[in-house]
Design a protein around this nucleic acid. Sequence first.
DNA 1: CTCCATAGTTTCTTTTTTGTAACTATATAT
DNA 2: ATATATAGTTACAAAAAAGAAACTATGGAG
Lengths: 127, 127
Amino acid sequence: MGIVKPAYPCMLTLAMDLVGGKWKMVILWQLRNGIFRFSELKRVLIGITQKMLTQQLRELEDAGIIIRTVYPVVPPKVEYSLAEEGKKLIPALDALCQWSTNYAASYGIAQSTCCSAQQEERSLTGV
Amino acid sequence: MGIVKPAYPCMLTLAMDLVGGKWKMVILWQLRNGIFRFSELKRVLIGITQKMLTQQLRELEDAGIIIRTVYPVVPPKVEYSLAEEGKKLIPALDALCQWSTNYAASYGIAQSTCCSAQQEERSLTGV
DNA sequence: CTCCATAGTTTCTTTTTTGTAACTATATAT
DNA sequence: ATATATAGTTACAAAAAAGAAACTATGGAG
């Protein structure tokens, strides 16, 4: 993943190359709530390692799906947000999320919170 | 993949467990066109190996996403089609597909055919 | 009696992805 | 002089996914 090939037989395979894997969609799903710093993402994406987070963020940035803004301060401050391509993807992720939520309900699979369209706001309201 | 866990922090990770990986979505995308035999799927999913195809089909069946119908004849005849959960997923895949098609257009990535909602029909029209 | 077609298995290998842990840089505060 | 916070890197190891190739079963055709 992260490496976009020159051609695809099915556009779904391109989608998987761009946002497949264990973390990318979850990152984007979080970013739909607004702007987040690296450390905030790390805190909220439970279980992700520093290496994975940087790696996935970098690939998403390279693909033009998210925007990375570096502030030249010390200690470092870097903010992440959805680029246009990323925003356009949210409805698809939403559909996927609703499908699996419904699936989980049918099959008695537990979920904790998240996914239900709003998290704890912030960033949106500008805290 | 293929192994559904008892709980998920984000439903998108459940979706990835259910239909992530290199082939599952592509298989489902094909099956949206109707009923296919094993050998037909193998022919149309260019590059997939026999092992991969059976494995992915079996996992999708176990998840209740597709239906596998075995005809007790020789040589064997097995047909695959979307189960209800699979049909419900198609709109999400469609959204994903449109997103990546649009993305590919913006970034000059080539596609061959597929994805554009109809393939060559058949099975639907009942050939 | 041998071959064919279909839908698989099985074993082994390679590749990809993910994870762990330690290390870096630097302005500011103490 | 030393510790602190943030956003990383790097080298290595483990695990998971994918692929290759050969093998299986069986009724009917020739």
